[in-house]
């Protein structure tokens, strides 16, 4: 599972964001992008020492300033549902290849040259298809 997929799933959920400078921002995630830039609503900002507080209706945080994000535990279960739905769609279309196990381990893509190969099931399927074509031609 990718950290940014989890973050995307956490949209509309409350979260705590700690910045590299130690400030923390509590609020609801409105949106995020591939650089981890985020939009929060109904925010409470806490100073580094936890002694000063600021309330603001919304704020935008540059991703590169973030140290970590704390998100509600239940969000991780919602990601699984989303990815498995996607997989089902892809498998039906028979596109691209790549089995479920591969999608769950992103680094595997780079190592094994993901795209082409796909899972063993997919590969044998393709070969099988071609094979039957040849056989038909021969028999005719």
């Amino acid at each position: 599972m990718l950290p940014l997929s989890l973050l995307r799933t956490a949209q509309n959920h409350p979260m705590l964001v700690e910045l590299k400078n130690g400030e923390t921002y509590n609020g609801h995630l409105v949106s995020c992008d591939n650089w981890m830039n985020i939009n929060l609503r109904e925010v409470i900002c806490t100073s580094r020492d936890g002694d000063k507080f600021w309330r603001m209706p919304e704020c935008y945080i540059r991703g590169s300033t973030i140290k970590y994000l704390r998100i509600p535990d239940e969000v991780i279960d919602m990601v699984k549902e989303e990815t498995s739905m996607k997989n089902r769609g892809r498998d039906n279309k028979g596109g691209r290849g790549g089995g479920q196990s591969q999608r769950n381990r992103p680094a595997a893509r780079g190592n094994f040259g993901g795209r082409g190969g796909g899972g063993p099931g997919n590969k044998s399927g393709n070969q099988g298809g071609r094979g039957t074509l040849f056989n038909k031609n021969k028999s005719k």
Binding site: L6, L7, K20, L69
Partner: peptide
């Protein structure tokens, strides 16, 4: 609980 830690850190 559940955390995303940014790689920079």
């Amino acid at each position: 609980g559940l955390h995303i830690i940014r790689g920079d850190n």
